[in-house]
Write a protein that binds this DNA or RNA. Structure first.
Lengths: 192, 192
DNA sequence: GTCTATAGAACGATAGAC
DNA sequence: GTCTATCGTTCTATAGAC
């Protein structure tokens, strides 16, 4: 339930966002959204055409937020290595997982190009953003020139996404942290 | 539908395994299992207590299969680096994802200790198995002695699990391959 | 814009005949 | 062991009053 002062459509989007994060698309019912948002059946179908339409609005918001959160750290100060380190070590609610990445395991999201698009764009943006930083690092000498920037970036993003998998499997954030530290050790500049 | 010659309970387990892989636990209904297996309602509730019980049998089988497939490659010939390389590069149906890892995004699996246990055990086994190989590599000189074996192993497993996420988001196996190549480049012995 | 009422289908499970 | 019938609930959506 949300306190008043926020529009109904806003509460619907935010409740859907939370439920998609916790339970995925298949596991989220309109009924559950209505209960959490405190809105009635009529309101939901007034503001949105149906579950896919509301989910799209929620997914787009999660995508935006994910990009903004990542960029805030990636655009920070320090060497390229330090900026990637900051991204990998930033505070996360690890056991909740990634609100965007988790949707890739949802068959109905993957089957619908409109729903999949924001997910694809977000992870693609992240890989490109990090690849640019790796490229900087190659120029500045922190990273070996032989490295393929976009491949290293893919490994960084995959380690994060996979770290969530390991953590949720074990019920503890420790596995996420281990993967991240392992990658950072491999990524660390040899000579300074 | 399965050809005859296999027991009904066998067909039920195998159909459930496929559906859990494709649609997850929440997205898989008893009805869908019955249709795919060709069994009737009565048969399913005769052999299994219900959906969770049948799912547990299916998850255990996927867990076993995953361990066997991984070990077949990890126990192969070559240096520690080459064995990990072989594991990372082995043929996969990338867009299908990992039948075990994908279950970590299923709220009902994570909430049920019995269903989560085989998932946890499998990923834990895999990390331990790979950590042992990294340890060998440290002794033989292929990997830097300063590396933490279990952290590197976590990074390897996370890259695979996260690679599936990237691939499914983009609808192409290319992103998985990129992440794996990025990790292998970082992992490669510097001096031979 | 929001409410309640209603709809047809699917969900997960049980009962009881054969 | 397998079948059909049935159950109460939830799913997603529509209708129509207010």
């Amino acid at each position: 339930m949300y306190s008043s002062g926020v529009s109904t459509s806003e509460r619907l989007i935010e409740s859907t966002r939370e439920l998609l994060w916790e339970r995925g698309y298949v596991g989220t019912s309109p009924k559950a959204i209505l209960e959490r948002s405190g809105a009635g059946q009529g309101s939901m179908y007034h503001h949105f055409r149906g579950k896919p339409d509301l989910a799209l609005a929620a997914i787009r918001r999660s995508a935006e937020e994910t990009r903004a959160t990542a960029d805030a750290v990636l655009a920070g100060p320090g060497t390229p290595y330090q900026r990637i380190e900051a991204y990998l070590l930033r505070e996360r609610d690890v056991l909740r997982g990634c609100p965007v990445g988790r949707l890739t395991m949802d068959p109905d999201v993957i089957a619908d190009d409109a729903l999949r698009a924001p997910v694809d764009e977000t992870l693609d943006w992240l890989r490109t953003r990090i690849a640019g930083i790796v490229e900087e690092g190659k120029e500045q000498g922190g990273f070996a020139p032989a490295l393929d920037s976009s491949e290293v970036a893919a490994a960084v993003v995959a380690t994060v996404q996979g770290g969530y998998v390991l953590a949720r499997a074990s019920g503890s954030p420790a596995a996420f942290d281990a993967g991240v530290r392992g990658l950072l050790a491999l990524l660390a500049p040899r000579e300074r």
